[in-house]
């Protein structure tokens, strides 16, 4: 991984918004123009995005790593900075620092089955891994995408999910917590989709991103069907101010989520996930 900052790692690079797209009621995507050099990153890494005068937030990169000419972030409007970013238009400038952190094990997963389990906006940090696997589809075994959202209206990247589901080399299963009568799909928690996905629990890599509680129950279910701890990967979320291991906010036991994570193998953090308030 390379630090992009020219002077100090706390100083951002300015990039203009080339595309702004609404995704859901409270979620939007901005595509930034990184210039001729492009913006290389690994699936699962994140950037610190700065909105003029308001502040900085850590946001996962959600574009295709094979297309470095556009830097894509899908953001939920939940705080002061994300709200400021949500109001920006094409041409507006955003400060960018990154890419930071660890990545999904797309290299280690070659030759085995891959299971993606995403909840809500947790699909955004996983999309670069999905893109990478689909681009290099022949290198992997069975490919499973399991996705849970609160309601049909909250399903992120609906068009893409439909496209992936249309492929004959990818198994996609979607569920929602609650829905009206016009919903023909599953209703219930995402863990219920695991048992019937028909992957080989002994030769698979699982990548999970979603609310911590959803990740916990998913791991429990995976353990029961025989997936080893070393083959399960999760992306953790913690408060971050610097992304370079200096501010101390993202500590999770002895780990700095910003540089040791955000992607961890479950084997590394199992004992930490079991204690409340770490």
């Amino acid at each position: 991984m390379s630090a992009k900052a020219k002077t100090d790692p706390m100083v951002p690079e300015l990039m203009s918004i080339s595309v702004r797209r609404k995704e859901l009621a409270d979620t939007f995507t901005i595509e930034l123009d990184p210039g001729k050099a492009g913006f290389e990153f690994l699936p699962g890494q994140f950037n610190m995005l700065y909105a003029f005068g308001v502040g900085e937030v850590p946001i996962s990169i959600s574009g295709d790593p094979a297309e470095p000419e556009s830097l894509v972030h899908t953001i939920r409007d939940v705080g002061a900075v994300t709200n400021a970013l949500s109001k920006m238009k094409k041409g507006d400038q955003v400060g960018v620092r990154g890419p930071f952190g660890s990545c999904w094990p797309v290299g280690e997963a070659e030759g085995s089955d891959v299971v993606i389990v995403a909840g809500g906006i947790g699909l955004a940090p996983l999309r670069p891994a999905i893109d990478h696997i689909l681009t290099n589809r022949s290198k992997y075994g069975r490919f499973v995408i399991l996705y849970g959202a609160r309601s049909p209206e909250d399903i992120l990247y609906m068009n893409q999910l439909q496209k992936w589901r249309g492929r004959l080399d990818t198994y996609v299963d979607v569920t929602v917590d609650h829905a009206g009568r016009d919903w023909a799909g599953n209703v219930g928690v995402v863990t219920r989709l695991i048992g019937r996905a028909n992957f080989d629990p002994r030769h698979t890599k699982v990548m999970i991103c979603g609310p911590e509680i959803m990740m916990r129950f998913t791991i429990k279910e995976l353990n029961q069907i025989g997936v080893s701890k070393e083959d399960i990967y999760v992306s953790m979320e913690r408060n971050m101010k610097c992304a370079i291991g200096h501010c101390g906010h993202c500590q999770f036991g002895g780990h700095f989520v910003c540089k040791d994570g955000p992607v961890f193998s479950y084997a590394r953090i199992e004992s930490l996930l079991q204690v409340r308030g770490l």
């Binding site: 502040g55 200096h246 501010c247 906010h249």
Partner: peptide, 10 residues
């Protein structure tokens, strides 16, 4: 102790 936060002023 090295923890810090960031603030913005306009």
């Amino acid at each position: 102790c090295f923890c810090s936060t960031t603030t913005d002023e306009t």
